[in-house]
Design a protein around this nucleic acid. Structure first.
Length: 188
DNA sequence: GGTGCGATTGCA
DNA sequence: GCAATCGCACCA
């Protein structure tokens, strides 16, 4: 069995974790014991309580409690009443921060999950994973092998235009040239 | 207790 | 271009 990224991996600020997550392999063990794997190619950092684009901006609520936990767990929320979005919680207990996983490509079969909602569907992640361990038996990350010199593109985050100056912060990280990058055709 | 809307997607 | 669809945040 391959190595899992340890809890300490998540115990840094969200932007650092986000950058480091590119090329890592998202792993999900299904009830039938099959294991799905996909290389992360697009993520976004939500960096703290002052980040106006973050769900935690207005403080702790029933929805976002997972963001306030110590790094190493999942934060899953429903968006537009239809889709789920999967985040890796980062940082220390009490400080709300997370990395939204937006797109992955499968190193095995080349199937891509482009977009946070589609990623959750592809990996069969739903609200029951909110607060679940990201170093657990059903959900974890493996190191992966992104070439160190593989270019990483930084852009503004998608769909947070309401967030004032925070909307313009370049907290979206994409593996340059990845065909699986999601978002509006327009790349900001 | 009522209301407005979103860290999106798919289809016209 | 826009409907789908619902939990949650906010106001009363």
């Amino acid at each position: 069995m391959k190595r899992r990224l340890p809890r300490e991996f998540f115990a840094r600020d969200a932007a650092a974790v986000a950058r480091d997550l590119l090329g890592r392999v998202l792993c999900r063990r299904l009830p039938d014991r099959r294991v799905l794997r996909g290389r992360l190619v697009e993520v976004e950092a939500y960096v703290g309580p002052e980040d106006r684009a973050s769900h935690a901006w207005r403080g702790r609520t029933p929805r976002n409690v997972a963001m306030f936990e110590a790094g190493g767990i999942a934060y899953v929320f429903r968006v537009y009443g239809i889709h789920f979005c999967l985040n890796a919680v980062t940082g220390r207990q009490g400080f709300p921060a997370a990395v939204l996983l937006r797109a992955a490509e499968s190193p095995i079969d080349g199937v891509s999950a482009s977009g946070p909602g589609r990623l959750c569907r592809a990996f069969s992640v739903d609200a029951s994973f909110d607060g679940a361990s990201f170093v657990g038996p059903d959900l974890w990350l493996e190191p992966g092998d992104l070439a160190p010199d593989r270019a990483v593109q930084r852009t503004a985050r998608i769909g947070v235009d309401y967030a004032g100056a925070w909307a313009r912060r370049r907290l979206r990280f994409v593996v340059a040239g990845s065909p699986d990058a999601s978002g509006p055709r327009r790349l900001r």
